[in-house]
């Protein structure tokens, strides 16, 4: 490569970085706006572009949001619920996805199509029947009602199946020749190789349940069981909204999601090539 080529490349890279920085500004602006609004005093105009910055800065909004609306308890509820749903989903989905992707049995594709089919079921359809089931089980206002219906999603099965399918058949053949049974195959070969997939599913499931709103709203009506989004909704007054506290709560809602993403991201960067393919 000649020097001028390298210079052109450098210039192009610089332009790309500038463009990407501009893009990053667009995507982060709302979060900054949320923080700015969260720090405003209640009577400062919120929607007025002339008053974007908080003046004076009300750090106590976060404290008020935490205590007044019981966000502390709600935060813990959300954390527990989301973690439980994520753990259960990873476990049951990976087992089922293994059966769909790496085992051979009659009727496999038909059963999978049924799974796939239910992915398409709009939430509105199952809402009432599910609610009636919860009522019959006397699970209204319980952690089971928050966790269990969300823990067997066909989505996870579908996602992991796709990841499991990308694992080269030769590795599996070799393992089988070495006398590995399906369980060993699952534990020692497929799940370790599919760690990026598992991490991805973990992030999605965690984020999904962390922001889940409609279902928790319907199955809980005791404050002690409210998840964060439901508790946040209590800020949304009947006729006028307390924007700063709502935004303070929204910031609290967002932080763990960023944490979850950062954590999961490390996993899929160190994915397949760092794992047992080399080892």
């Amino acid at each position: 490569m000649t020097g001028s080529n390298r210079a052109a490349l450098g210039l192009r890279d610089a332009l790309v970085v500038v463009a990407m920085t501009l893009l990053a500004l667009t995507t982060t602006a709302p979060f900054l706006w949320m923080i700015a609004t969260a720090l405003k005093s209640p009577d400062q105009p919120i929607l007025d572009p002339a008053h974007v910055l908080p003046r004076p800065v009300h750090w106590d909004n976060f404290g008020r949001a935490w205590t007044e609306a019981g966000l502390g308890r709600a935060f813990a509820n959300s954390l527990f619920t989301s973690a439980a749903i994520t753990a259960l989903t990873l476990l049951t989905s990976s087992l089922a996805a293994f059966a769909f992707a790496r085992l051979h049995w009659r009727g496999r594709d038909t059963v999978f199509l049924v799974y796939l089919g239910t992915l398409m079921v709009p939430t509105a359809v199952t809402l009432i029947p599910l609610f009636l089931v919860m009522r019959e089980l006397r699970w209204i206002n319980s952690y089971q009602a928050l966790v269990l219906p969300a823990s067997f999603s066909p989505y996870g099965v579908f996602l992991l199946r796709q990841f499991f399918l990308t694992i080269p058949a030769e590795i599996e053949e070799a393992a089988r020749l070495d006398g590995c049974g399906p369980l060993d195959l699952y534990r020692r070969i497929v799940t370790p190789l599919a760690r990026p997939g598992l991490a991805t599913l973990a992030i999605f499931t965690f984020l999904g349940s962390w922001t889940s709103f409609l279902w928790p709203l319907i199955v809980t009506h005791r404050q002690e069981l409210f998840t964060l989004p439901v508790a946040l909704a209590s800020f949304q007054e009947l006729h006028s909204i307390q924007w700063p506290l709502l935004m303070a709560g929204s910031v609290l809602l967002t932080l763990p999601m960023i944490a979850a993403f950062l954590l999961g991201q490390r996993h899929f960067i160190h994915g397949i090539q760092m794992g047992s393919v080399k080892g």
């Binding site: 527990f80 973690a83 439980a84 753990a87 259960l88 476990l91 699970w139 206002n141 319980s142 952690y143 089971q144 009602a145 966790v147």
Partner: peptide
């Protein structure tokens, strides 16, 4: 976690 889940359920 699964065990915790079962326990938490009883508190409903």
């Amino acid at each position: 976690l699964a065990a915790m889940l079962g326990l938490a359920g009883c508190s409903g």
